[in-house]
């Protein structure tokens, strides 16, 4: 899709504002994560605990919103119309998987699909928006917005560097993304909620805790067991869906054409 010819281009001040917002969001996210991992605050219920929970919640959420505000005005219309479809797919396919008691989430297929088709900025925006909208039905997902943004960002990055040129590369990229997402999201689970919200994942965390691990360590190990497998499957399914799209449709995304995401044959 070519950029709109009727509207004025963004001014230098607007571009600078978006860059500042993006940098502030990234710094806030990285700073909070490093602070939590280095200091590992104890006493999650009393004293400092409430402050850590509130600060972690606020910092992760504000960072996600800043990144969204930085990215949103830059997205082409083709990506903007794809994002609502992806958000609905996250919810519908997530519910379909959840209804059959399969121990997977698969609730980020839409986010990864947007990352593959429209790039990492669109993927990150989809992740944040998906969490914000889903929080209207399940408020506990709100501080995981930054993790969801990372899923979309990593999907776009993987596609840009050739993860869709060979079908077996997509699940490998998913595995790597799962490790990173698990590591980034575990401080939220540990310090905001004091653990996980699922019975199965709670049992795994309890097992690690009884072996002498700290809460953050136990939650991180649980995330490293669950997330890489889940993301590998999600990346594979999303890649197969992209391969199933008619070339006329996949080729209409500038990101696909520019970075030869599907290899030479996919860009004709």
């Amino acid at each position: 899709m070519s950029p709109n010819l009727l509207l004025p281009e963004a001014s230098a001040a607007q571009l600078l504002r978006r860059r500042v917002l993006g940098a502030a969001g990234t710094l806030l996210l990285v700073g909070t994560y490093l602070f939590l991992v280095i200091t590992q605050p104890t006493g999650i219920v009393e004293g400092l605990g409430q402050g850590v929970a509130l600060a972690t919640f606020a910092a992760y959420l504000i960072a996600a919103v800043l990144l969204l505000l930085a990215v949103l005005p830059d997205l082409p219309v083709s990506a903007l119309t794809l994002i609502p479809v992806a958000l609905a797919l996250n919810i519908i396919l997530g519910q379909f998987v959840g209804s059959v008691m399969v121990p997977l989430y698969l609730d980020s297929i839409g986010t990864v699909l947007v990352g593959f088709l429209a790039g990492r900025r669109a993927g990150a925006a989809t992740g944040v928006l998906s969490t914000l909208i889903w929080s209207l039905f399940a408020p506990t997902v709100l501080p995981f917005a930054a993790g969801a943004a990372l899923v979309g960002f990593l999907a776009g990055t993987a596609a840009r560097y050739g993860a869709l040129r060979r079908p077996y590369l997509a699940p490998i990229a998913g595995l790597v993304a799962g490790v990173l997402v698990g590591v980034v999201s575990s401080p939220v689970a540990a310090f905001v909620y004091g653990g996980t919200s699922g019975v199965g994942t709670g049992a795994v965390v309890a097992a690690f805790r009884s072996m002498g691990d700290s809460l953050l360590s136990a939650v991180t190990k649980q995330a490293l067991i669950s997330d890489p497998g889940d993301k590998a499957i999600v990346f594979l399914i999303a890649a197969l869906l992209v391969f199933a799209l008619p070339k006329r449709l996949s080729g209409s995304f500038e990101f696909i054409r520019r970075y030869k995401v599907l290899g030479k044959s996919g860009n004709k």
Binding site: M1, N4, V77, S78, L80, T81, L82, P84, V85, A88, L89, I92, L93, I109, L113, L117, I237, L241, A244, L245, P246, L249, S252
Partner: peptide, 20 residues
């Protein structure tokens, strides 16, 4: 999933042309 995604992406593409 396949028919749902294909038809939805096609719809999104058509919508983007009209919106632009």
């Amino acid at each position: 999933a396949v028919p749902l995604v294909l038809s939805s992406v096609q719809d999104a593409h058509d919508r983007s042309v009209h919106l632009a």
